[in-house]
Design a protein around this nucleic acid. Sequence first.
DNA 1: ATAGGGTTAG
Length: 850
Amino acid sequence: MLYNISLSPKPFTTKITKAFFSTTPTATATLLLKQCRSILQAKLVHQHILVRGLTHSVTDLIAAYVACNAPSQALSVLQRLVPPCSSTVFWWNVLIRSAVRSGLLEDVLCLYGRMQRLGWKPDHYTYPFVFKACGELHSFRRGASVHAAVCVNGFESNVFVCNAVVAMYGRCGASGEARKVFDEMLERGIGDVVSWNSIMAVYAQSGDSKNAIEMFDWMTGDFHVRPDAVSLVNVLPSCASLGEPKWGMQIHGYAIKAGLFEDVFVGNAVIDMYAKCGMMDEANNVFDGMKDKDVVSWNAMVTGYSQIGRFENAIGLFENMREEKIELNVVTWSAVIAGYAQRGHGYQALDVFRQMKTCGSEPNVVTLVSLLSGCASAGALIHGRETHGYAIKWILNLDGNDPGNDIMLINGLIDMYTKCKSAKVARMMFDSLAAETKNVVTWTVMIGGYAQHGEANEALELFYQMLRQHCSLKPNGFTISCALMACARLGALRSGKQIHAYVLRNQYDSMKLFVGNCLIDMYSKSGDVDAARVVFDNLQHRNDVSWTSLMTGYGMHGRGEEALQVFDEMRRVGLVPDAVTFLVVLYACSHSGMIDEGMTYFNGMCKDSGVVPGPEHYACMADLLGRAGRLDDALNLIKTMPMEPTPIVWVALLSACRIHGNVELGEYAADQLTELDSENDGSYTLLSNIYANAKRWKDVARIRLLMKHTGIKKRPGCSWVQGKKGTTTFFVGDRTHPQSDKIYDILADLIKRIKDMGYVPETSFALHDVDDEEKGDLLFEHSEKLALAYAILTTPPGAPIRITKNLRVCGDCHTAMNYISMIIEHEIILRDSSRFHHFKKGSCSCRGYW
DNA sequence: ATAGGGTTAG
């Protein structure tokens, strides 16, 4: 609080100054004050005035202190003056203005209060400054009370004051109040072009593009007010955010006609408008035609190209800027870094960052945050850490940092660490933050990080914690999407439904499509595809993701016919299938044994829809043919691939070999995988199982040794049971559950009973070379069997049992569950990594296609 | 008054 310091100069005692001032009269004091260039000089003269009692010089004294940038000294003089005193309000205004300019907003309000307590009335100069401060402080309460004072003191007919009121309400997020004041101005006939600009800015900043444009339309139409450059620059961003260029083009034309286009600000705003509408050719025309370009013009072009994915053009322009020696600023660098980051090229982003530092440009928060997102998408932990270090240095070197910047950086860091598989580090950062520091994004990146990282349980727990602890911090659409993603992973139908209810109770209008699609995905993957259908049918707007999510749901449930119906419907409404859509269609066929249909779609996708099959599509076909036992056809198809087969293709063939016990082809596929340096733990397990099935124990041992040597560990199988109180997790051979003994007892009893019914353990699904008896035991410790026993223990009779497994369900478990479903009072709904298995009285919905 | 940044779906 610079302005509260009340300083009286201490007596000055050097001989020289005494000698210098001893003969100076009042007039000389005034003259000297005008020449003061430092606080020290002003203080000397001040001292002299006090000693000599030259009271007439006080206004000059205040002026001198203001000129020497010593507002607190000026204030201390000012405060001793008593009204009426000519020109004093002027000096209060000068001080208030300097406080506004230095960003000392609270001081502005203090000065405003103090001047009134000392008996001065603010005037039409004072109020705009005070409103500016209220606006920047986003303090509606204080702004409104000053507005009331304006009305009481009869300033509501002053156009400057009223314009400031409009802007203040806008900054406080009260566009309705702003509009009221604006309308009153129009009624009084005192509105000017600045008033129109102000109300347009209010709407533009609150994201109300329609109203912003409507105001522009009225202004130029019914009211015949000539817009100036500011009007255009205010309204153009709103045209862009409508996503269609109709209004923007009109205003572009208007700017040319009105001769406002020479203004570099207008040109830049037009470029930006076209760029945001994705019309880079138009933007380029404007850019080429501009006489004066500045760095903003270039940057708008660079980011425009970068954001529509024409990154080569963006980089080209960037190179041009360097050639033409345009001074690159921090925005330019950040935009290029962000461009690389968005395309997942984290390493190039880092490289540009290094160049930036060599060029002597200082990075800011935006640069660092962009860089972090690049590291995140590249999974580059080491570079992420380097950036972390830089961020710490950067924060420490900063004075007067905006706290909003800190949290931005921290959010970026948390996101980077979760995406670089360091969820623990991320969580430590998250936990070390004070509750009031965290914002919605902080929670969302942490929840989303867990959800995507396979720790979906943690994600849901954190989400519920957020709901419980932070009534003031509401989850936004992103948060909801992340939480639903976690439910989808776990197959947590109950939690998913709760979140669905939460969505219905709270308004998530702006995010309807995203949240809706996540709900479809959640219901599909949690075993209730019919609920997914209801959500789908109730969506007002659907996009390709909505359709494919629903198809995935039908596909996972083996309801291939319905999936294909959805596909037809999707094309009927005019949506064009893309690579992902076809992948989903092919999987639906594969899971339902619709081999001919799958072949037809695969063969026609390029011809009919122009989608060239990629390795994923070939992998899916290998899966489809392989499951059906047509292993040679699968191999032949792989051989016709126009590109090198990727690991997933060989894995598909290998798993088909596992199902059909083809050792020779399996070895071939495994060899191909080794050649590709693929570190797929699943492929070793598959090959080992193939050998075990053929009773080639030496080879089983060899694989086991190989895995040991290369340090590849089998990803532990893991199953989740959905219960009333949430999710319970079981790993292979898990004995950590408090009711573990009971669980194993139940399981042993079940196995005994189904053995009597004819169940024979399929020991080839056990990984190790041990005698048959023991292998049986290992099989019984598979996580899905433990989960089933626990579910039987805790589920009320008649209620369905829902289990989700992280890997594919093992063949033995599948058989066992089929038997078990005959002797228990529950249906078993098991979801594994690829599809649903709905066991009901001894039969499974997958009909052998799994 | 114009340009850049962190979180979401198949």
